[in-house]
Structures are given as structure tokens and as C-alpha cells.
Design a protein around this nucleic acid. Sequence first.
DNA 1: ACGGATTCAACG
DNA 2: TCGTTGAAT
Length: 623
Amino acid sequence: MPVAKPESSDSRVIAHVDMDCFYVQVEQRKQPQLRGLPTAVVQYNEWKGGALIAVSYEARKFGVKRSMRGEEAKEVCPQVQLVQVPVARGKADLSGYRNAGSEDGNDVKENVRKWIHRHNADHRDKLLACGILIVAELRMQVLKETEFTCSAGIAHNKMLAKLASGMNKPAQQTVVPFSSVKGLLDTLPIRKMKQLGGKLGISLQMDMGVNTVGDLLQFPEEKLQERYGINTGTWLWNIARGISGEEVEGRLLPKSHGSGKTFPGPRALKTVPAVQHWLNQLCEELSERLCSDLDQNKRIAHTLTLHARAYKSSDSDSQKKFPSKSCPLRYGTAKIQEDAFNLFQAGLREYIGFYGGKTQGSHCSGWGITSLSVSASKIVPIPSGTCSIAKYFQGQSTSHFSSMQSSDNLNTEATLSLPSGSECYSEVNLSEPKIDFPKEESWIKDTVPDLDLQEQKDLSSPLSEKTQDGFIQEDISPLLLSGCLEQNRSKQQRDLTKDESQFKSEYKERKGKRLKDKGTYSIIELFKSYNPNPSGSFLSHEYNRTVGGTDASSSSYSRDEEEGRREAWGYNIDEIDPSVMEELPTEIQDEIKAWMQPHKRRPNNMVKRSCTISHYFSPSKKS
DNA sequence: ACGGATTCAACG
DNA sequence: TCGTTGAAT
């Protein structure tokens, strides 16, 4: 019973949540008729049908890939639905996706944080199991509130969580228990690891003959250090062993904003006025976003940076790079435009060198700009006591560039954005019931499983059946959360999946895939193996009930599904069986008590949710 | 004519 | 600090 406890220092529970082909989902939500169809988002359309920047999983089956041109996509998948990114100011405008990514940011963040306030579990896997449940619930909530599905990985560190989140996409979550780490990494192609997808990974392959993470194990730490430096070397040595101390940063807002555009080949900008025109466009967008940030988040950026890429048509070191330049950032569109232009000119002078001048008379400037971007960084919160923002800015020093005043247009729009991309890490401090997450944190990552009815039956069936299916023997593979509820599917999704036969075939497909995995565990199995009292476990009761309910009325759960969910997942804190507590390690008991005390009386559903987890460790569920 | 635009971290 | 480079998506 007492599972031989392998020693590994890191018993954090970390989850990585990753939205599935996010831009596509945004478009599909906007145009529901696109749901279920092979879909891709392209930006621009003039040249070869535009560039794909997001591809739905249906389209991926046809071989459509990111970084294809629209025309290529049509070749491999004629039915593919191509949705264009909106254009504003002559450039791709990503604000729609940015905004979709941040919508509800507050609620989500608050909810997630609170959910995770409590914890219990006694062993590594139980800790992970706790994470599984939280993440499953989280994903469900995300789907319900945003209509977006996501995938997740749960593991003991960030690296593994991230890895796992991509293993079963879309709309599923994957757990990596400690015991499966070695087996997982052993055959994993080295380039799949985060940070090894580029030059370093190639060097590892070419120079060291390392093709899998497992191959790395042979090299002594010192060897790696002398080849790649002290930092990278030790880092490599550790990740080969599944060790990563990287911490989760609880950041919700971006650290910078940028606006840029490329001008490939023939479109390169060859005159200063042309550059100025585009700089003005870029600065206008940037200024708008800065104002939104100021408005919504009460913070200001302090540094403006200009980047450019250029070529020199005639003459020597065409290798030379256009230098990036930065200066203090002054708010106001015109000021930003002016400063950016000055930065550009400074960079250009430097780039051209000394005889750059005007060797080619009036027509050819001798240079061309192939990309331009302006960005704002060093964004800090406004001093809280600042009553008048206008006054605050007047107090700002002027930039060192001579500049005129000008009409500041402090626009106010909403653009609260999450960190970049469509993934999100959340970390929580378990030992502290408060807002900040310190040491013992949990990483939560989350995705929505996409299971059909049959799969649900699997879930509700006796635990042993799953075991007999034979895919959970070895302990060397990641756990797949194979049980989640019909609730996880949104109304729209359900309507789309009316075709029952397609449904089943997909199910088979997935099941087959799962069998190929070295081992997958159902969530119930996981609990069973560590639960002293396997019999009528609380969990299976709950799943049975839930499945039964949704099965019959597999419509949407618009009305009292809210109630249904609570019934299934939420329990009042007072219902916690004291015997459950006694089973837990004392530290965890203490945490729970500490958490319960101050909140005891809050009739908040948050409280209920929190208690749900405790119940999962209950040996005997009280009806 | 590079998949474009964006963000971030590490490093010198 | 600034600027560059690499990486990921």
C-alpha cells in the first residue's frame, strides 16, 4: 500500500493550459457555421493567398500546416475555409484575438486563484490528481464562459506540464506522474523540448549525436557545461532527468506592446517619406494600445524602441544589421511618431555608415527597409495616488529629442490583454490562503476533453474494466484524463456533433490512439490505486450521476445545468467528513484548516468548490 | 519573396 | 542600460 516513495524534491503540481488553435476558435465563435469544418486563419491574401497563422485540427488532418500559403492550403485541402485577419492601417490587425484572449481576464483569474486555494493529498500522485480535477473543472468553466476549448498538461514542473499539454490535443488534458517521467523522456525527440526547438537542439543532434532526451543521459554534467556553458550545460543535464526548477510567474498582463510590419522583397521601403508613413501607422496603433493599457490597467510604458531590417543593395557588408534604437517614451500619438522617426533616422545614419550618402543620384537610395516595428516596454503601474493622469504626464520630462508639443490623443479603448499567445500558466500557493503565490505552488493547466457518450460509460463503469482494457499496466507513460463529462462540451459543440456515426468513429480513433500509448489511466483508476477504500468511491458516484443526467438530456445545460454542475462538483464545506481529514498528511490538514477558518461562513460557491477536492479523497462517500 | 507579427528571455 | 540574438507561437 505505501507506495515506495521515490525521492524527487519537486512536489509542486504544475498545470499548463493551452488554447487550441486559438485564432481559429475566435473566428469560429464569430461564425459558428465554421465549427467542425477545416478552417484556417490567414493574414493578407494578395500574395499566394496569404500566410496561415492558425489551423484547425480538422484542417490539420488534410496536411494543412501553419506557415503554408493560402493557395497551398487549398491544394491539399480544397474545402478549407480561409478566414482573413482584418487589416487596419494597411497592416494585419490582431486586436480581435488579443481582446478575445483577455476577455474575462479578471473573472477567470479570480476564479482560478480561488479554486486553487485549497489543497489536499498525501502523495505525489494524489497531488497531481488534485490538479487533474481542478484543471478539468477549470477547462469546463473556460468552455462555458468563452466557448473556447483548450488542452492541458499537469505535472510536477513547468517543463513537463508544457510538454504534456501538447500531447493530446485538442480538448484533452494529460498528466505526467513522477513514475512516468523517465519513460516519457527516454524516446522523446530532443527538438520537442521547449528551448530545444532551435539552434541549440540542432547542435545537440549534429555535434553530440543526441536525438532523444534520453540520449542526453550519457553525458556527464561537466561535459555539457564545457560544451554549452555553465548555465545551459547544467540546464541540459537536469532536463534530461525531468528536473526543472523554473518557477511559475503569476503575471496576467503583457510586459510590452509592439506593432510591426514586414515589407518583403519588392515591397521594401526605399525612401524616407515612405518609412515615415509606415512608422506613423505603426505608432498610431501602438499609441492606441498604450492608451488602452493606461486606461484599463493604470500603467505606463517608459521606453520606446524601434527595430528595423534593411538591406543595402549596392556595395559591401550587406551583412550589416540595422541597429535598434530606443528612447524615453512620451505619450501622445504625434510624440511617439516623432520620436520613432528620430530613432529611425539615427539608426539609418549608423546603418549607412559614412559614405552612405547619395551615391545613386535621386532614384535609388541604396538601401531598403524590409521590416519595421515599434514597441513599448518597461511598463509600470501608475503611482496609486495619482489623481489626475493629465497632470501626471505634464510632469513628465520631455524626451531628449527636440520635439514639438502636439495634440495628445489619449484615447480610451479597452485592450486588456493576457500575456502573449493562447496559453496560460497559473500558479498557486497552497500554503498561503491569500492572493500571492509563493513557494509551494500548483501549476494548473487546462483543456476540455472531448468525449462521447460511450466514453462516458467507460467512465462510469467499474474501475476494473478500464484496467482490463490493458492500457494502464505500465507506469511509464503519461496519464490521460480519459474521463470528463459531457458537460465539457458546449452547446454549440453538441449541436455540431449531431452526426452520431461520425461521433463514434472519432471515438474509436481516439481509443485506438490511446491504446498505442504505453499506458493511460483513467482518473478513477488513479484515485483507486491510492485510496484505501476503493469501493463505492465518491468519484464514481459522482460520475455516474452526472453522466446519467447529461446522457438523457444531452441538450445544452443552459438553465439549471448550473445547478447540475454544482451538484456534481460542489459540496458544502460542512459536509466534509472528518475522517477524510484524518487521512491526510498533517501539513495538508493544517493547510485546509487554515484555509477553512477565515472563510467558514462565506456562502460563496467558491467555498463549495474548494471543498470538492477534499471529497475526492474521502474513503467513503456519504450520500 | 523569409510564414508575419508579436512577445519574451538570455546574453554581451 | 542598451542592444542583439534566439526562441516560441
